[in-house]
Simulated assay, not measured.
Amino acid sequence: MLSLIKLPRVLTINQVPKVFHEDGIVSGYRYPYSSAKDCVLSIFQLTNETLNIWTHFLPTWFFLWKLLMVLEEEEWWDSYCWPLLTFLISCCLYPLASSCAHTFSTMSERARHICFFFDYGALSFYSLGSAITYSSYAFPEKWVNSAFHKYYVPTATFNAIISTGLACYSRSTVKSSAKLGKNLRIVAFTYPYLFDNIPLFYRIFMCAGGGCTVNEATAVHYQHTALALLTGFLFATHLPERLAPGSFDYIGHSHQLFHVFAIIGTYFQLTAIELDMTLRKRWLQAHSQPITFTNTVGAALFCAASSLCIIYIFCRALSSTRTRRDRDLK
């Protein structure tokens, strides 16, 4: 069937505008002003984006299945389940947003920016979903009900919103300095990650003696943390393609590996969260601060609404810039 369809041709780096360039990737670029139909067709041919799309699109359905299983098997109206449900929704959204961004980012320069604005918003929402579950299920016993615990979710919500804004702003620096834009994005996502994981880092690396919450989830938290650090390394370094430009254009470049290890890490993260949720339920319900709509679903909705407002502002800014440029050309 696909043999009867004329697939879009692929280009080299010299044939596309600089905004579409990727470090170390020489060929396999799609036409930078493709139609939506061509973008969809391109996911069925080998380009430098094909595996970026599929490595996040397929896992979306796994996490959606997990979400439906929780809704079916758990008492979803019980507030104790709300953090897990919030996290699973974020696990569905961020790979879906990423796969859509990579699919339709070649419609135009403006479309590319807008696609990745939504991708950044989904990643920020995922970071907050992680923080909400850590607050509810993974905090070390020594820190439960502390001042840090009390303000942990509100701070994580603020960080996620700032992350969206800084990441979106980073794309406005592309024309002046692509390197600066990339560094801003690294900061935008590293800071919330480090803050959100403070209780987990303390629990698995620093805590000693009683109240450290050592259980079956601890080893899985180690695995998730190792994979998270690996994904950050790949995103920041552009290895291995930087060492051999052109050798990993289609298979094996850093962004593909980043996607694969991020999804595997999310799976381990979910496994650890479910273990903590089950093993610590009785103790947490007796000793921890109550799980409420405000510190779970409410915080997530506020973050999502704020991020959408930020994305709207940056989209309007793109439209204004384009209008001014068109007027100047006339």
Rank of each mutant, 00 (worst) to 15 (best):
Y312F: 15
A208H: 12
G28R: 09
Y94L: 00
H255T: 09
S247G: 06
F158A: 13
M206P: 00
S79H: 05
H102F: 02
L279W: 05
A208M: 07
V260K: 14
C81E: 08
Y312I: 02
N48C: 08
Y222C: 11
D326G: 05
F189A: 02
T55G: 14
V40G: 15
A147G: 04
L11A: 08
T266D: 09
T296C: 00
I310G: 13
V174I: 06
A147M: 07
E274G: 14
I186P: 04
D196Y: 07
V297N: 04
W76Y: 15
V187P: 13
F258M: 05
F201E: 10
V297T: 13
F258E: 12
E216S: 12
Y193V: 04
C315Y: 12
T237H: 07
R280P: 02
A217H: 07
L7I: 06
G24H: 12
L279T: 09
S319E: 13
W65Q: 15
K182L: 04
N215T: 08
A300W: 03
T60H: 09
A122P: 00
L229V: 01
K281D: 08
F57R: 11
E74R: 15
F125W: 07
Y250E: 05
T86E: 08
A122C: 03
T321M: 11
L64W: 11
A160F: 04
S34P: 09
K150H: 14
R112D: 09
F63P: 06
L58K: 14
A156L: 00
V40H: 15
M69P: 03
L58P: 07
A317D: 09
T164L: 01
R112V: 00
L180D: 12
L67K: 10
S320R: 07
D328F: 10
P8I: 03
D276I: 01
Y169C: 01
S124R: 06
V187K: 14
S90F: 00
S306L: 00
F302G: 03
S79M: 00
L4D: 11
Y31W: 13
G211Y: 08
M107R: 09
L275I: 12
G121K: 04
I251E: 08
T213R: 14
F62P: 01
I186E: 07
S35M: 02
E22S: 12
N48M: 02
S127P: 05
T321K: 14
K182M: 05
V70M: 03
S177F: 05
S79P: 02
H21G: 11
P154G: 02
P83D: 06
A138W: 02
S35G: 08
T55K: 05
T231C: 14
A217G: 15
A208E: 15
